[in-house]
Simulated scan of single mutants.
Amino acid sequence: MVEVRAQRASKPVTVRAAAKINLHLGVGRVRDDGFHPLDTVYQAISLHDDVTVEVADEDALTVDGPSHVDVAGVPTDASNIAVRALAEVSCGSRHRVRIVKQVPVAGGMAGGSADGAAALLAHDRLHDLGQPDDVLLAQAARLGSDVPFSLVGGTARGRGRGELVEPIDDAGSWWWVVVPAAVGLSTPEVYRHFDRLRPDAPEQPAEPLDLLAALAGREPVRLARALHNDLEEPAIDLRPELGTLIERGEAAGALRGLVSGSGPTCVFLCDGRDGAMEVVAGLSEHYDVVLPAVGPVAGAHVLA
């Protein structure tokens, strides 16, 4: 925890942070500390959470969202990552936090990480702390592996546990269709199943060289061929219906379907906006929630 002297707090600050998908997720053999080395390419897409922070007499947290986002399982106590983010920098104030979610809960799209990043930035701006980017990123890394990327946004490569983030120049505009699952999937269990299925996994994961070249070329078909997720096999083995979903999405016209991160949300790369709308229409015959999205979009930022 870092202690700072807060300036006079102004009006409430609202920060928007985007969902992430993994265009490449290479996973290495589990280390002695229990973590897996990762080499991943993140992209922020246009599903987002908004986090509002204001000074209050007592600490409080509320979570809301549209009907298709089940917020019932999101904690509203000190275990919530947004509350833990505020505790990273002690300024002696109490806060009221409101989270409005659009990112699927427990869907492998780093919605919790987005909330943590948004709370860090909102707190910094609320109290006019002016912390440099490297300090905010260090705070984010202590909260979780995906939180630094939620600050950075755009398209970026992550290494280590995913927390060492290097932005990638991505001038493309990529259209996606997102299908969340009604029931979440435990990330630790997916990693454990990866270990069972891949006892011979390499110490260091494969580098995303083909994918980086596809991004530079701005060619959707080439990018579709380069998408990769080492956790897709264990996720589908645990939840076979995810494989059926991917087959349906590709049959509806998607260039490629992929489990997002550790799942269970699946994402589909499409050939432009019109192609995405066709896939939305096709999958809506089978699934209640089918969402178009575009990427890359900005990382955590203050709403005017």
Score class of each variant (00 low, 15 high):
M1N: 09
M1H: 11
V2F: 09
V2I: 14
V4I: 14
R8M: 06
K11C: 12
K11E: 15
V15Y: 07
V15D: 08
R16A: 07
R16P: 10
A19L: 02
I21K: 01
L23I: 04
H24E: 06
G26A: 03
R29V: 00
V30K: 15
R31D: 01
D33I: 05
D33F: 02
P37K: 07
L38I: 14
L38G: 09
I45V: 15
I45M: 00
L47W: 07
D50P: 03
V53S: 04
V53M: 09
A60F: 08
L61M: 10
G65P: 12
P66W: 03
S67I: 03
V69S: 00
V69D: 04
V71E: 05
V74Y: 09
V74F: 06
P75V: 13
A78L: 13
R84I: 01
R84V: 05
R84P: 08
L86H: 02
L86Y: 08
A87D: 15
G92Y: 11
S93R: 15
I99M: 11
Q102F: 02
P104H: 10
M109Q: 00
G111K: 04
A118E: 04
L120P: 07
H123Y: 06
D124G: 01
R125E: 14
G130S: 13
Q131M: 14
P132K: 05
D133H: 13
D134F: 11
D134N: 12
V135K: 10
L137H: 14
A138W: 12
Q139Y: 08
L143N: 09
V147R: 07
F149R: 02
S150V: 00
L151E: 01
G158L: 01
R159A: 12
L164I: 13
D169H: 09
D170K: 01
S173G: 10
W174T: 05
W175N: 14
V178C: 06
V179A: 02
L185H: 02
S186F: 07
P188H: 06
Y191P: 08
R192A: 15
F194S: 06
L197W: 00
R198M: 13
P199G: 12
P202A: 11
P202N: 01
E203V: 13
P205T: 05
A206W: 07
E207F: 07
P208T: 08
P208S: 12
L209E: 10
L215D: 13
R218A: 14
R218F: 04
P220G: 10
V221C: 08
A224C: 12
R225H: 13
H228Y: 14
N229A: 06
L231D: 06
E232C: 11
E232Q: 15
E233N: 05
A235H: 03
A235P: 04
A235M: 01
D237K: 15
L242R: 05
I246A: 07
E250N: 06
E250P: 03
G253Y: 04
G257V: 09
G257K: 08
G261S: 09
G261F: 01
C266E: 03
C270P: 00
D271R: 11
D271A: 14
G272E: 05
A276K: 00
A276E: 05
V279R: 11
V280L: 00
L283N: 01
E285T: 13
V290D: 06
V294L: 10
G295L: 00
A300W: 04
H301A: 15
A304K: 11
